[in-house]
Design a protein around this nucleic acid. Sequence first.
DNA 1: CTGAAAGCGCTTACAG
DNA 2: CTGAAAGCGCTTACAG
Lengths: 326, 326
Amino acid sequence: MRATIKDVASASGVSIKTVSRVLNNERYVGVATRKRVEAAVAELDFRPNLAARSLGGRRSFHIALICDNPSPAYVYAMQQGIRDRCEIDGVRVLAQPYDRGSPRLHGEIDALISTSNPDGLILTPPLSDDEAVLALLEKRGVRYVRVSPGAHVERSPAVYIDNIGAARALTEHLVARGHRRIAHVTGQRDYATSAQRLAGYRAALEAAAILVEPDLIVPGRYDFASGAEAADALLSRKDPPSAIFAGSDEMAAGALMVAHRRGLAIPGDIAIAGFGDDALASYVWPPLTTMRQPVRDLAWNAADLLLGTDDGQRQLPHALVVRGST
Amino acid sequence: MRATIKDVASASGVSIKTVSRVLNNERYVGVATRKRVEAAVAELDFRPNLAARSLGGRRSFHIALICDNPSPAYVYAMQQGIRDRCEIDGVRVLAQPYDRGSPRLHGEIDALISTSNPDGLILTPPLSDDEAVLALLEKRGVRYVRVSPGAHVERSPAVYIDNIGAARALTEHLVARGHRRIAHVTGQRDYATSAQRLAGYRAALEAAAILVEPDLIVPGRYDFASGAEAADALLSRKDPPSAIFAGSDEMAAGALMVAHRRGLAIPGDIAIAGFGDDALASYVWPPLTTMRQPVRDLAWNAADLLLGTDDGQRQLPHALVVRGST
DNA sequence: CTGAAAGCGCTTACAG
DNA sequence: CTGAAAGCGCTTACAG
């Protein structure tokens, strides 16, 4: 059997309470005592049982990542960043995917809180702005950190990039390439990032004294299929745009495919840019010009805010990545 | 505060032991008693605390997925399948990514077992065949299920597809298209699937009386970059192949990019096929001919084996998907 | 700076 | 078919 706190206590000649103090790095432990306990911990290869710590104390040493599926690459990068940070504190991560629009979402989060008592949750879009979920967490007194929230940024700790500025910079790049008729494909309406990126697109056009044409703004769903559909509609017009700025790399990839099918040269006939710098941005042909969003860093910082005592907001830098598609 | 088992017991006029029996679906509970307890559970919205169940009992209601990063899409599909199955039993999933080749892997798994007492682990390649890891789990008496193991399939419950047959079928498709000089890009040597897919490739060529040329077998690492490198080497030859069968879709995507750079027509000048039918197989241009591997189903079955009592092996069907790249 | 006692919310082992 | 007692391995609240 594995060593327990009792074994460590008797091996080092102290009470279990003192071992507990050492484990939790509390003050007021004699230097010599601490050394002896640490030696016994190492000797016995003792690791505290999380269930016992959770049941006895105020922390569970678990956090949960609630996410649906914008893109596997996004979710995976989020998990990596969160893991990187949680590992430092010995905190475990519960993966809590859910199906978008599932009516059971509330019940599942409620059950998660009741059964697992997570020390906190990390919310990604569109949950970052889901009022019902936020209200539930606040009612139950569970800490949470939001990734890329839209409104009420100060309502909770949060991490994000400047989506408006980033979209504006990307659009300005297209303007600098000589484009005047630039289309934009948006994400879902309930993603705050959709509206933010649209705002940045508008701002760039207005600054360049280019009329914003409502017909060139097409709704998408951040995925490949909706990007393909949007591009098809745009390129079927009598007066097609010369450039398409898609709100995600997946949608840009869909647009690329449609352009290829139509035998168009890229970027000669149609320039295409994405957003995110997902791995697939480098897979497609030609490689995508896009805006890098540091997802793994955002995730690391989200976990850092959750585990730490700092209740702030953190904005991380974005970066324009120019490749062959523009 | 949330209701506990005591609240349910007093609300239904029984002992906590009887409530426990109902929760665990044990036999020998009177029908009327069971009904009363269930009513109280619903009324109080009672959910048993997992930490307490774990500490008191033999199960922790947690399983862990140990995985590195072959591809985010693969990992994500695995998580979805596992989640789908675990949800049914109210079991939570600990995401335990690790860095490939990390010397700390052993210690991390050891710590995971000690601190979280998972009811079982799911291992994906290359861990499915990592003798040191398997030995550790067996020594500590932790159940595990392997996904796509190579040797000693009967050593543990396992799920897989017929990689040899699948690779053979894909190669036969290329032969049927008239190709005689078919190259193969393999995955890492420590992935059993690499050798299996290579064996299928060889078998198809031999069955078609085509000489297997060692020079046309190039090592890769299952990722985009290694696929691009391999294709570059193959297409630089004086006598390049007319078709490339890459052991993964990511490598095939890398090969596609190289072919585009060289101005080659696909599949006219060079046919390219992948393996897996990842989402990206449909993103690239032209869309990839590939072999569908039902990752989510494999994952569901892995979790099912872990949670159930059936200690078998399960082979799932694969399917050839012919698209524009061949 | 250290420890004895009680308790977290369940399950187990035993008794009836 | 049901229950009383003990225990899982920690932390808390209190005392010294």
